[in-house]
Nucleic acid binder design. Structure first.
Lengths: 244, 244
DNA sequence: GTTCGTCAACGAACGCTGTTCGTTCCGGAC
DNA sequence: GTCCGGAACGAACAGCGTTCGTTGACGAAC
Protein backbone atom coordinates (compact mmCIF):
# COMPACT_ATOMS: atom_id res chain seq x y z
CA UNK A 1 0.00 0.00 0.00
CA UNK A 2 1.56 3.26 -1.07
CA UNK A 3 1.98 6.06 1.47
CA UNK A 4 0.46 9.30 0.24
CA UNK A 5 1.07 12.82 1.51
CA UNK A 6 -1.66 15.33 2.27
CA UNK A 7 -1.23 16.89 -1.13
CA UNK A 8 -1.95 13.66 -2.81
CA UNK A 9 -5.28 13.16 -1.13
CA UNK A 10 -8.18 14.38 -3.22
CA UNK A 11 -10.63 16.51 -1.23
CA UNK A 12 -14.37 16.71 -1.66
CA UNK A 13 -15.21 19.77 -3.75
CA UNK A 14 -17.48 21.19 -1.02
CA UNK A 15 -14.58 21.65 1.35
CA UNK A 16 -13.34 25.20 1.59
CA UNK A 17 -9.98 25.45 -0.05
CA UNK A 18 -7.24 26.73 2.22
CA UNK A 19 -6.62 30.33 1.46
CA UNK A 20 -3.29 31.27 0.06
CA UNK A 21 -2.23 34.48 1.55
CA UNK A 22 0.89 36.58 1.70
CA UNK A 23 2.63 36.43 5.06
CA UNK A 24 1.37 38.90 7.56
CA UNK A 25 3.29 42.08 7.69
CA UNK A 26 4.07 43.67 10.96
CA UNK A 27 2.91 47.17 11.81
CA UNK A 28 3.68 49.62 14.53
CA UNK A 29 2.30 52.89 15.66
CA UNK A 30 5.44 54.62 14.42
CA UNK A 31 5.13 53.48 10.81
CA UNK A 32 1.43 54.34 10.80
CA UNK A 33 2.08 57.85 12.08
CA UNK A 34 4.92 58.32 9.60
CA UNK A 35 2.71 57.24 6.69
CA UNK A 36 -0.09 59.54 7.84
CA UNK A 37 2.37 62.42 8.14
CA UNK A 38 3.70 61.90 4.61
CA UNK A 39 0.15 61.87 3.32
CA UNK A 40 -0.75 64.97 5.30
CA UNK A 41 2.15 66.92 3.83
CA UNK A 42 1.36 65.83 0.31
CA UNK A 43 -2.42 66.19 0.31
CA UNK A 44 -3.62 68.04 3.38
CA UNK A 45 -5.69 66.72 6.21
CA UNK A 46 -8.57 65.62 3.97
CA UNK A 47 -6.16 63.38 2.13
CA UNK A 48 -5.49 61.39 5.27
CA UNK A 49 -7.96 58.53 5.54
CA UNK A 50 -7.56 55.22 7.28
CA UNK A 51 -7.91 53.43 3.96
CA UNK A 52 -5.25 55.47 2.27
CA UNK A 53 -2.81 55.19 5.16
CA UNK A 54 -3.37 51.45 5.23
CA UNK A 55 -2.96 51.16 1.48
CA UNK A 56 0.37 52.99 1.65
CA UNK A 57 1.49 50.42 4.20
CA UNK A 58 0.26 47.54 2.06
CA UNK A 59 -2.53 46.49 4.41
CA UNK A 60 -6.21 47.19 5.16
CA UNK A 61 -7.75 49.88 7.34
CA UNK A 62 -8.88 47.46 10.04
CA UNK A 63 -5.26 46.64 10.81
CA UNK A 64 -4.59 50.17 11.99
CA UNK A 65 -7.00 49.79 14.89
CA UNK A 66 -4.65 47.42 16.67
CA UNK A 67 -2.31 50.39 17.11
CA UNK A 68 -4.46 53.51 17.32
CA UNK A 69 -7.85 53.79 18.94
CA UNK A 70 -9.40 55.75 16.10
CA UNK A 71 -8.67 58.35 13.53
CA UNK A 72 -8.75 61.15 16.09
CA UNK A 73 -5.99 59.50 18.06
CA UNK A 74 -3.96 59.02 14.90
CA UNK A 75 -4.25 62.71 14.09
CA UNK A 76 -3.26 63.63 17.66
CA UNK A 77 -0.18 61.48 17.30
CA UNK A 78 0.66 63.09 13.98
CA UNK A 79 0.26 66.51 15.58
CA UNK A 80 2.64 65.66 18.35
CA UNK A 81 5.12 64.29 15.86
CA UNK A 82 5.06 67.65 14.11
CA UNK A 83 5.45 69.45 17.43
CA UNK A 84 8.52 67.36 18.11
CA UNK A 85 10.34 69.00 15.21
CA UNK A 86 10.09 72.45 16.74
CA UNK A 87 13.36 73.48 18.37
CA UNK A 88 13.14 74.77 21.93
CA UNK A 89 15.77 77.33 22.91
CA UNK A 90 17.40 77.88 26.30
CA UNK A 91 15.15 80.36 28.10
CA UNK A 92 16.55 83.86 28.55
CA UNK A 93 14.05 86.06 30.40
CA UNK A 94 15.87 89.22 29.38
CA UNK A 95 14.86 88.40 25.83
CA UNK A 96 11.46 86.92 26.57
CA UNK A 97 9.64 88.85 23.86
CA UNK A 98 12.03 87.80 21.18
CA UNK A 99 11.95 84.20 22.31
CA UNK A 100 8.16 83.97 22.53
CA UNK A 101 7.83 85.45 19.05
CA UNK A 102 10.50 83.14 17.66
CA UNK A 103 9.12 79.98 19.22
CA UNK A 104 5.48 80.55 18.33
CA UNK A 105 6.41 81.68 14.85
CA UNK A 106 8.18 78.33 14.51
CA UNK A 107 5.01 76.63 15.73
CA UNK A 108 2.98 78.54 13.16
CA UNK A 109 5.34 77.56 10.35
CA UNK A 110 5.44 73.94 11.46
CA UNK A 111 1.64 73.79 11.44
CA UNK A 112 1.30 75.70 8.17
CA UNK A 113 3.67 73.34 6.42
CA UNK A 114 1.53 70.40 7.44
CA UNK A 115 -1.83 70.95 5.89
CA UNK A 116 -4.53 71.92 8.33
CA UNK A 117 -3.38 69.62 11.09
CA UNK A 118 -3.98 72.65 13.28
CA UNK A 119 -7.66 71.69 13.16
CA UNK A 120 -6.63 68.96 15.54
CA UNK A 121 -5.28 71.48 18.02
CA UNK A 122 -8.57 73.34 17.96
CA UNK A 123 -10.79 70.31 18.28
CA UNK A 124 -8.81 68.72 21.09
CA UNK A 125 -6.33 70.38 23.44
CA UNK A 126 -2.87 69.11 22.44
CA UNK A 127 -1.49 67.21 25.41
CA UNK A 128 1.18 65.05 23.80
CA UNK A 129 4.73 65.14 25.19
CA UNK A 130 6.10 67.46 22.52
CA UNK A 131 3.23 69.91 22.85
CA UNK A 132 3.74 69.93 26.60
CA UNK A 133 7.39 70.86 26.12
CA UNK A 134 6.42 73.96 24.18
CA UNK A 135 3.80 74.81 26.77
CA UNK A 136 6.27 74.34 29.62
CA UNK A 137 8.87 76.55 27.98
CA UNK A 138 6.34 79.33 27.42
CA UNK A 139 5.07 79.15 30.98
CA UNK A 140 8.57 79.20 32.45
CA UNK A 141 9.75 82.07 30.27
CA UNK A 142 6.77 84.30 30.87
CA UNK A 143 6.86 83.59 34.59
CA UNK A 144 10.53 84.48 34.77
CA UNK A 145 9.82 87.65 32.81
CA UNK A 146 7.45 88.81 35.52
CA UNK A 147 4.06 88.20 33.93
CA UNK A 148 1.47 87.68 36.70
CA UNK A 149 0.73 84.11 37.60
CA UNK A 150 -2.81 83.82 36.21
CA UNK A 151 -1.80 85.56 32.99
CA UNK A 152 1.07 83.09 32.58
CA UNK A 153 -1.29 80.19 33.10
CA UNK A 154 -3.73 81.42 30.46
CA UNK A 155 -1.21 82.63 27.94
CA UNK A 156 -0.42 79.29 26.31
CA UNK A 157 -4.06 78.83 25.40
CA UNK A 158 -4.22 82.31 23.87
CA UNK A 159 -1.07 81.79 21.86
CA UNK A 160 -1.99 78.28 20.75
CA UNK A 161 -5.46 79.31 19.65
CA UNK A 162 -4.24 82.26 17.66
CA UNK A 163 -1.39 80.37 16.05
CA UNK A 164 -3.57 77.40 15.18
CA UNK A 165 -6.28 79.56 13.69
CA UNK A 166 -3.72 81.26 11.47
CA UNK A 167 -2.34 77.93 10.38
CA UNK A 168 -5.81 76.64 9.57
CA UNK A 169 -6.52 79.77 7.58
CA UNK A 170 -3.44 79.00 5.53
CA UNK A 171 -5.19 75.98 4.16
CA UNK A 172 -7.26 78.28 1.98
CA UNK A 173 -4.12 79.01 -0.01
CA UNK A 174 -2.82 75.47 0.17
CA UNK A 175 -6.12 74.05 -1.05
CA UNK A 176 -6.17 76.44 -4.00
CA UNK A 177 -2.72 75.27 -5.01
CA UNK A 178 -3.65 71.66 -4.65
CA UNK A 179 -6.58 72.21 -6.96
CA UNK A 180 -4.26 73.79 -9.47
CA UNK A 181 -5.97 77.13 -9.10
CA UNK A 182 -4.29 80.46 -9.13
CA UNK A 183 -3.96 82.04 -5.74
CA UNK A 184 -3.51 85.53 -7.06
CA UNK A 185 -6.73 85.14 -9.02
CA UNK A 186 -8.67 84.18 -5.92
CA UNK A 187 -7.40 87.12 -3.91
CA UNK A 188 -8.06 89.39 -6.85
CA UNK A 189 -11.64 88.21 -6.89
CA UNK A 190 -11.95 88.91 -3.18
CA UNK A 191 -10.51 92.35 -3.80
CA UNK A 192 -13.00 92.96 -6.60
CA UNK A 193 -15.78 91.88 -4.30
CA UNK A 194 -14.69 94.41 -1.68
CA UNK A 195 -14.46 97.13 -4.30
CA UNK A 196 -17.93 96.29 -5.61
CA UNK A 197 -19.63 96.78 -2.27
CA UNK A 198 -21.87 99.85 -2.00
CA UNK A 199 -19.76 102.66 -0.63
CA UNK A 200 -22.63 104.15 1.41
CA UNK A 201 -22.82 101.01 3.50
CA UNK A 202 -19.16 99.95 3.42
CA UNK A 203 -17.11 103.17 3.14
CA UNK A 204 -14.10 101.93 5.12
CA UNK A 205 -13.99 98.58 3.35
CA UNK A 206 -14.00 100.32 -0.02
CA UNK A 207 -11.46 102.94 1.05
CA UNK A 208 -9.06 100.47 2.62
CA UNK A 209 -9.51 98.08 -0.30
CA UNK A 210 -5.95 97.08 -1.23
CA UNK A 211 -4.71 97.43 2.37
CA UNK A 212 -7.10 94.70 3.42
CA UNK A 213 -5.26 92.08 1.42
CA UNK A 214 -1.81 93.61 1.69
CA UNK A 215 1.05 91.66 3.12
CA UNK A 216 1.74 87.98 3.00
CA UNK A 217 0.58 85.44 5.53
CA UNK A 218 3.76 85.62 7.57
CA UNK A 219 3.50 89.39 7.90
CA UNK A 220 -0.13 89.29 8.89
CA UNK A 221 0.56 86.56 11.41
CA UNK A 222 3.52 88.45 12.87
CA UNK A 223 1.30 91.50 13.29
CA UNK A 224 -1.28 89.56 15.28
CA UNK A 225 1.31 87.79 17.38
CA UNK A 226 2.83 91.15 18.22
CA UNK A 227 -0.54 92.36 19.48
CA UNK A 228 -0.69 89.46 21.89
CA UNK A 229 2.88 89.83 23.04
CA UNK A 230 2.30 93.54 23.55
CA UNK A 231 -0.70 92.65 25.66
CA UNK A 232 1.37 90.29 27.75
CA UNK A 233 4.05 92.90 28.24
CA UNK A 234 1.45 95.38 29.47
CA UNK A 235 0.61 92.94 32.26
CA UNK A 236 4.11 93.03 33.71
CA UNK A 237 4.09 95.36 36.73
CA UNK A 238 6.68 98.13 36.84
CA UNK A 239 8.05 96.62 40.02
CA UNK A 240 7.91 93.09 38.75
CA UNK A 241 9.39 90.56 41.14
CA UNK A 242 12.63 89.02 40.02
CA UNK A 243 11.79 85.41 39.39
CA UNK A 244 15.01 84.23 37.85
CA UNK B 1 -69.52 51.12 -30.74
CA UNK B 2 -69.07 52.38 -27.16
CA UNK B 3 -66.69 55.27 -26.39
CA UNK B 4 -64.22 54.42 -23.62
CA UNK B 5 -61.99 56.73 -21.56
CA UNK B 6 -58.30 56.16 -20.93
CA UNK B 7 -59.09 54.58 -17.58
CA UNK B 8 -61.20 52.03 -19.21
CA UNK B 9 -58.57 50.79 -21.58
CA UNK B 10 -56.73 47.78 -20.25
CA UNK B 11 -52.93 48.04 -20.51
CA UNK B 12 -50.45 45.31 -21.21
CA UNK B 13 -48.94 44.14 -17.93
CA UNK B 14 -45.39 44.87 -19.13
CA UNK B 15 -46.06 48.58 -19.31
CA UNK B 16 -44.71 50.53 -16.39
CA UNK B 17 -47.51 51.64 -14.14
CA UNK B 18 -47.77 55.40 -13.66
CA UNK B 19 -46.19 56.32 -10.39
CA UNK B 20 -48.38 57.74 -7.74
CA UNK B 21 -46.53 60.41 -5.92
CA UNK B 22 -47.29 63.06 -3.38
CA UNK B 23 -47.42 66.56 -4.80
CA UNK B 24 -44.11 68.30 -4.95
CA UNK B 25 -43.35 70.49 -2.10
CA UNK B 26 -41.70 73.79 -2.70
CA UNK B 27 -38.35 74.65 -1.15
CA UNK B 28 -36.34 77.80 -0.81
CA UNK B 29 -32.91 78.69 0.32
CA UNK B 30 -34.36 80.33 3.41
CA UNK B 31 -36.15 77.25 4.71
CA UNK B 32 -33.09 75.12 4.03
CA UNK B 33 -30.82 77.48 5.96
CA UNK B 34 -33.33 77.67 8.81
CA UNK B 35 -33.53 73.88 9.05
CA UNK B 36 -29.74 73.58 9.00
CA UNK B 37 -29.46 76.21 11.71
CA UNK B 38 -31.95 74.42 13.98
CA UNK B 39 -30.00 71.23 13.51
CA UNK B 40 -26.70 72.96 14.17
CA UNK B 41 -27.94 74.34 17.46
CA UNK B 42 -29.33 71.02 18.57
CA UNK B 43 -26.53 68.71 17.51
CA UNK B 44 -23.45 70.65 16.51
CA UNK B 45 -21.88 70.93 13.10
CA UNK B 46 -21.41 67.18 12.71
CA UNK B 47 -25.13 66.76 13.09
CA UNK B 48 -25.78 68.82 9.98
CA UNK B 49 -25.83 66.59 6.93
CA UNK B 50 -27.62 67.10 3.64
CA UNK B 51 -29.72 64.03 4.30
CA UNK B 52 -30.80 65.13 7.70
CA UNK B 53 -31.61 68.65 6.60
CA UNK B 54 -33.61 67.23 3.72
CA UNK B 55 -35.39 64.75 5.97
CA UNK B 56 -36.40 67.54 8.32
CA UNK B 57 -37.95 69.31 5.32
CA UNK B 58 -39.68 66.15 4.18
CA UNK B 59 -37.65 65.71 1.01
CA UNK B 60 -34.43 64.12 -0.25
CA UNK B 61 -30.89 65.47 -0.24
CA UNK B 62 -30.73 65.94 -3.99
CA UNK B 63 -33.48 68.58 -3.76
CA UNK B 64 -31.24 70.88 -1.77
CA UNK B 65 -28.83 71.28 -4.66
CA UNK B 66 -31.33 73.36 -6.61
CA UNK B 67 -30.86 76.04 -3.93
CA UNK B 68 -27.33 75.71 -2.60
CA UNK B 69 -24.26 74.77 -4.59
CA UNK B 70 -22.96 72.34 -2.03
CA UNK B 71 -22.68 71.78 1.66
CA UNK B 72 -19.92 74.36 2.05
CA UNK B 73 -22.19 77.04 0.64
CA UNK B 74 -24.97 75.96 2.95
CA UNK B 75 -22.69 76.28 5.96
CA UNK B 76 -21.52 79.72 4.76
CA UNK B 77 -25.13 80.80 4.55
CA UNK B 78 -25.82 79.45 8.02
CA UNK B 79 -22.80 81.34 9.32
CA UNK B 80 -23.99 84.58 7.85
CA UNK B 81 -27.44 83.99 9.30
CA UNK B 82 -25.86 83.71 12.72
CA UNK B 83 -23.80 86.84 12.10
CA UNK B 84 -27.00 88.66 11.30
CA UNK B 85 -28.21 88.27 14.88
CA UNK B 86 -25.27 90.21 16.29
CA UNK B 87 -26.27 93.78 17.16
CA UNK B 88 -24.03 96.53 15.81
CA UNK B 89 -23.84 99.67 17.95
CA UNK B 90 -23.40 103.27 16.85
CA UNK B 91 -19.65 103.84 16.73
CA UNK B 92 -18.19 106.08 19.43
CA UNK B 93 -14.43 106.45 18.93
CA UNK B 94 -14.00 107.83 22.45
CA UNK B 95 -15.06 104.41 23.71
CA UNK B 96 -13.48 102.33 20.99
CA UNK B 97 -11.92 99.78 23.35
CA UNK B 98 -15.18 99.13 25.10
CA UNK B 99 -17.05 98.81 21.84
CA UNK B 100 -14.53 96.47 20.22
CA UNK B 101 -14.57 94.25 23.27
CA UNK B 102 -18.37 94.26 23.44
CA UNK B 103 -18.90 93.56 19.76
CA UNK B 104 -16.37 90.78 19.42
CA UNK B 105 -17.50 89.24 22.68
CA UNK B 106 -20.97 89.15 21.14
CA UNK B 107 -19.48 87.47 18.08
CA UNK B 108 -17.78 84.93 20.29
CA UNK B 109 -21.00 84.14 22.16
CA UNK B 110 -23.00 83.93 18.94
CA UNK B 111 -20.53 81.43 17.53
CA UNK B 112 -20.21 79.45 20.75
CA UNK B 113 -23.96 79.05 20.96
CA UNK B 114 -24.04 77.53 17.54
CA UNK B 115 -21.91 74.44 17.67
CA UNK B 116 -18.60 74.73 15.92
CA UNK B 117 -19.90 76.73 12.99
CA UNK B 118 -16.78 78.79 13.60
CA UNK B 119 -14.93 76.06 11.71
CA UNK B 120 -16.55 77.61 8.67
CA UNK B 121 -14.98 80.97 9.43
CA UNK B 122 -11.56 79.37 9.61
CA UNK B 123 -11.88 77.30 6.50
CA UNK B 124 -13.29 80.09 4.34
CA UNK B 125 -13.07 83.81 4.95
CA UNK B 126 -16.59 84.95 5.88
CA UNK B 127 -17.73 87.38 3.21
CA UNK B 128 -21.49 87.32 3.61
CA UNK B 129 -23.36 90.62 4.05
CA UNK B 130 -23.73 90.28 7.80
CA UNK B 131 -20.09 89.40 8.32
CA UNK B 132 -19.10 92.38 6.23
CA UNK B 133 -21.19 94.67 8.45
CA UNK B 134 -19.19 93.58 11.50
CA UNK B 135 -15.96 93.98 9.60
CA UNK B 136 -16.94 97.46 8.39
CA UNK B 137 -17.86 98.60 11.88
CA UNK B 138 -14.55 97.40 13.28
CA UNK B 139 -12.55 99.07 10.54
CA UNK B 140 -14.39 102.36 10.91
CA UNK B 141 -14.11 102.43 14.68
CA UNK B 142 -10.42 101.59 14.83
CA UNK B 143 -9.64 104.07 12.10
CA UNK B 144 -11.51 106.82 13.90
CA UNK B 145 -9.67 105.91 17.10
CA UNK B 146 -6.35 106.65 15.44
CA UNK B 147 -5.00 103.18 14.78
CA UNK B 148 -2.61 103.32 11.80
CA UNK B 149 -4.09 102.43 8.46
CA UNK B 150 -2.36 99.10 7.85
CA UNK B 151 -3.05 97.96 11.40
CA UNK B 152 -6.72 98.79 10.93
CA UNK B 153 -6.79 96.79 7.73
CA UNK B 154 -5.28 93.72 9.36
CA UNK B 155 -7.11 93.90 12.64
CA UNK B 156 -10.36 92.28 11.56
CA UNK B 157 -8.49 89.16 10.51
CA UNK B 158 -6.69 89.00 13.85
CA UNK B 159 -9.89 89.45 15.83
CA UNK B 160 -11.89 87.04 13.70
CA UNK B 161 -9.26 84.34 13.89
CA UNK B 162 -8.88 84.60 17.62
CA UNK B 163 -12.60 84.71 18.28
CA UNK B 164 -13.34 81.83 15.93
CA UNK B 165 -10.61 79.67 17.43
CA UNK B 166 -12.05 80.23 20.89
CA UNK B 167 -15.52 79.36 19.71
CA UNK B 168 -14.27 76.18 18.07
CA UNK B 169 -12.48 75.22 21.25
CA UNK B 170 -15.80 75.55 23.05
CA UNK B 171 -17.01 72.55 21.12
CA UNK B 172 -14.89 70.36 23.35
CA UNK B 173 -17.26 71.19 26.19
CA UNK B 174 -20.38 71.09 24.04
CA UNK B 175 -19.46 67.70 22.62
CA UNK B 176 -18.94 66.29 26.10
CA UNK B 177 -22.39 67.45 27.11
CA UNK B 178 -23.95 66.05 23.99
CA UNK B 179 -22.44 62.68 24.78
CA UNK B 180 -23.88 62.86 28.27
CA UNK B 181 -20.46 63.03 29.78
CA UNK B 182 -19.43 65.06 32.76
CA UNK B 183 -17.43 68.15 31.88
CA UNK B 184 -15.95 68.52 35.33
CA UNK B 185 -14.73 64.95 35.15
CA UNK B 186 -12.92 65.61 31.89
CA UNK B 187 -11.18 68.72 33.17
CA UNK B 188 -10.31 66.92 36.36
CA UNK B 189 -8.65 64.23 34.30
CA UNK B 190 -6.67 66.84 32.40
CA UNK B 191 -5.66 68.36 35.73
CA UNK B 192 -4.59 64.96 36.99
CA UNK B 193 -2.55 64.48 33.86
CA UNK B 194 -0.75 67.77 34.43
CA UNK B 195 -0.07 66.88 38.04
CA UNK B 196 1.27 63.47 37.03
CA UNK B 197 3.92 64.87 34.74
CA UNK B 198 7.50 64.53 35.95
CA UNK B 199 8.39 67.66 37.86
CA UNK B 200 11.98 67.73 36.63
CA UNK B 201 10.81 68.15 33.06
CA UNK B 202 7.64 70.13 33.67
CA UNK B 203 8.21 72.19 36.82
CA UNK B 204 6.07 75.17 35.79
CA UNK B 205 3.22 73.00 34.56
CA UNK B 206 3.14 71.14 37.83
CA UNK B 207 3.49 74.27 39.92
CA UNK B 208 0.83 76.20 38.05
CA UNK B 209 -1.44 73.15 38.01
CA UNK B 210 -4.82 74.49 39.11
CA UNK B 211 -4.18 77.92 37.58
CA UNK B 212 -3.94 76.32 34.16
CA UNK B 213 -7.59 75.31 34.17
CA UNK B 214 -8.86 78.17 36.31
CA UNK B 215 -11.57 80.46 35.06
CA UNK B 216 -14.43 79.72 32.76
CA UNK B 217 -14.39 80.02 29.00
CA UNK B 218 -15.73 83.57 28.98
CA UNK B 219 -13.02 84.75 31.36
CA UNK B 220 -10.26 83.10 29.42
CA UNK B 221 -11.60 84.50 26.18
CA UNK B 222 -11.88 88.00 27.66
CA UNK B 223 -8.26 87.76 28.80
CA UNK B 224 -7.05 86.94 25.30
CA UNK B 225 -9.22 89.57 23.65
CA UNK B 226 -7.82 92.12 26.06
CA UNK B 227 -4.29 91.23 24.97
CA UNK B 228 -5.20 91.97 21.38
CA UNK B 229 -6.99 95.19 22.18
CA UNK B 230 -4.02 96.27 24.29
CA UNK B 231 -1.80 95.58 21.32
CA UNK B 232 -4.02 97.68 19.08
CA UNK B 233 -3.99 100.51 21.57
CA UNK B 234 -0.20 100.45 21.66
CA UNK B 235 -0.23 101.15 17.95
CA UNK B 236 -2.03 104.48 18.33
CA UNK B 237 0.54 107.26 18.16
CA UNK B 238 0.57 109.83 20.96
CA UNK B 239 -0.17 112.53 18.42
CA UNK B 240 -2.79 110.47 16.61
CA UNK B 241 -4.59 112.40 13.92
CA UNK B 242 -8.19 113.22 14.66
CA UNK B 243 -10.17 111.16 12.21
CA UNK B 244 -13.66 111.76 13.47
C1' DG C 1 7.73 18.03 21.05
C1' DT C 2 2.30 19.73 21.62
C1' DT C 3 -1.29 22.73 23.30
C1' DC C 4 -3.31 26.94 24.61
C1' DG C 5 -4.09 31.80 25.08
C1' DT C 6 -3.37 36.33 23.52
C1' DC C 7 -3.11 39.77 20.34
C1' DA C 8 -1.98 41.53 15.85
C1' DA C 9 -3.57 41.38 11.16
C1' DC C 10 -7.12 40.79 7.99
C1' DG C 11 -11.53 40.80 4.93
C1' DA C 12 -16.28 41.60 4.77
C1' DA C 13 -19.71 44.36 5.91
C1' DC C 14 -22.26 48.03 8.29
C1' DG C 15 -24.14 52.61 8.42
C1' DC C 16 -23.17 56.72 6.97
C1' DT C 17 -21.45 60.81 3.97
C1' DG C 18 -21.73 64.40 -0.19
C1' DT C 19 -22.83 64.46 -4.69
C1' DT C 20 -24.23 63.30 -9.57
C1' DC C 21 -27.22 61.65 -13.05
C1' DG C 22 -31.36 60.91 -15.32
C1' DT C 23 -36.34 61.41 -14.88
C1' DT C 24 -40.56 63.68 -13.71
C1' DC C 25 -43.28 67.54 -12.59
C1' DC C 26 -44.75 72.24 -12.68
C1' DG C 27 -45.37 76.85 -14.11
C1' DG C 28 -44.75 80.41 -17.40
C1' DA C 29 -44.34 81.93 -22.14
C1' DC C 30 -45.90 81.57 -26.62
C1' DG D 1 -52.88 73.65 -26.66
C1' DT D 2 -47.23 72.91 -26.84
C1' DC D 3 -42.62 73.83 -25.39
C1' DC D 4 -38.97 74.99 -22.31
C1' DG D 5 -36.40 75.71 -18.13
C1' DG D 6 -35.69 74.79 -13.66
C1' DA D 7 -37.21 72.72 -9.32
C1' DA D 8 -37.88 68.31 -7.13
C1' DC D 9 -36.93 63.63 -6.84
C1' DG D 10 -35.02 58.64 -6.50
C1' DA D 11 -31.34 55.70 -7.48
C1' DA D 12 -26.82 55.14 -7.44
C1' DC D 13 -21.93 56.24 -7.15
C1' DA D 14 -17.66 56.53 -4.63
C1' DG D 15 -16.05 57.24 -0.60
C1' DC D 16 -15.71 57.46 4.65
C1' DG D 17 -14.67 55.46 9.77
C1' DT D 18 -15.41 51.61 12.20
C1' DT D 19 -16.92 46.93 13.92
C1' DC D 20 -17.17 42.04 13.84
C1' DG D 21 -15.62 37.58 13.25
C1' DT D 22 -11.77 34.86 11.52
C1' DT D 23 -7.04 33.67 10.92
C1' DG D 24 -2.21 33.59 11.90
C1' DA D 25 1.84 34.15 14.70
C1' DC D 26 4.15 33.83 18.80
C1' DG D 27 5.44 32.77 23.44
C1' DA D 28 4.59 30.31 27.66
C1' DA D 29 3.37 26.20 29.95
C1' DC D 30 3.31 21.44 30.06
Amino acid sequence: MLVTTAEDRPEPPWWTPRKTRAPRRSLSREVIVAAALRMLRAEGVDGVTMRRVAAELGTGPASLYAHVANKDELMDLVFDEIAGDIPIPEPDPARWREQIVALWTDVYHALSRNGDIAHTALARVPLGPNSMRISEFTLALLYAAGVPRQAVAWSVDVLALFVSANAVEDTISADLERQGRDRAEYYEKVGDYFASLPAEQFPMTVELGPDLSAGDKAERFAFGLDMIVEGLASRIPRDAPDRR
